[in-house]
Write a protein that binds this DNA or RNA. Structure first.
Length: 278
DNA sequence: AAATCACTCAACCGCTATAAG
DNA sequence: ACTTATAGCGGTTGAGTGATT
């Protein structure tokens, strides 16, 4: 015995919403608030499933939605956040007030991917395309061929490609899921041998900008299990915080700008090599 | 003017984690 | 303990629209 079904799927509308449906949904939520999507369609007199109502409200009808084009600042923030979070659109949207995950996802696929490719960067990993290693990802190739096919002779994709930061698995087989980035020359800014002037200029500009720091840290007190695990996998020491730094559970999501000295703001000073605590 | 192409974005689909019965 | 629905997410689709041929 489980729950009863959320709606009569045979009697629900699909496709584009009408103005009347929108109005009904808005009126209902104004009166009763969000939530309980299961019962909402019946209560609001809508022939839609709750899932569809929720999506329509979140992505289109919510009054706090920001309309209009994305600004340059928003573009850059999305790029930064995507480089840190990947395709976690809801997390990215949480950092852009008034924007929805769906909107950002669409914008990414239609604009930003192209923008990164034009900078010579792989949109999947934000690293320069590597002509010697594998190749750009399939999606990047698809976009490149799709979007520049009308202008191949004048493509903005750099013809030469940067050596990339490579993703190196740690030695221990038991730690295959833990990776570290082997940072090559980009940090020192000597990525010059195989870049176009445009790409070099981009990195010069990027290095002069304040560093956006987005750090999600979840730490748990060291338990007996941890200690036992550590004895089996001593390499975990390299990725775990010092035991004394985690006397209690800590959850800290930090968004901020570092100054030139690499320090965080006074409210978010880093106390260890691994974590920052607010 | 008509046909075709390219792009955008709202909406749907399928999946997972969690809650409810 | 198990089954089933819900909420929420990311990926994909396709209708609508504007640009190009």
């Amino acid at each position: 015995m489980g729950r009863s079904p959320c709606c009569e799927k045979a009697h629900t509308n699909k496709g584009a919403w009408t103005k009347e449906e929108d109005q009904r949904l808005v009126n209902y939520i104004r009166l009763h608030g969000e939530g309980c999507w299961r019962s909402l369609p019946t209560s609001a007199g809508l022939l839609r499933c709750g899932k569809s109502c929720r999506l329509r409200w979140i992505n289109y009808l919510r009054p706090d939605l920001k309309r209009g084009n994305f600004t340059e600042d928003e573009d850059e923030l999305i790029i930064k956040l995507h480089s840190l979070l990947g395709n976690k659109w809801s997390l990215i949207a949480a950092r852009l007030p008034g924007r929805t995950d769906n909107e950002i996802k669409n914008y990414w696929n239609t604009h930003i991917k192209r923008k990164l490719i034009s900078r010579g960067l792989d949109p999947q990993n934000h690293r320069p395309f590597d002509s010697t290693a594998a190749t750009p990802t399939a999606s990047a190739i698809a976009i490149t061929s799709l979007d520049f096919r009308k202008n191949t002779s004048n493509s903005t994709v750099p013809s030469k490609i940067l050596p990339s930061q490579s993703l190196v698995p740690l030695q221990n087989n038991q730690l295959n899921s833990i990776y570290k980035f082997k940072t090559e020359s980009l940090e020192e800014g000597n990525c010059s041998s195989s870049t176009t002037e445009e790409t070099q200029e981009y990195f010069r500009k990027e290095q002069n900008k304040p560093v956006l720091d987005l750090e999600l840290s979840i730490g748990l007190p060291m338990t007996r299990t941890d200690q036992k695990t550590e004895s089996v996998w001593p390499e975990l020491r390299t990725v775990k915080p010092p035991t004394q730094a985690a006397p209690r559970m800590c959850l800290c999501w930090q968004l901020g700008f570092q100054n030139k000295a690499g320090e965080f703001c006074s409210n978010c000073r880093s106390t260890t090599a691994f974590y920052s605590y607010c």
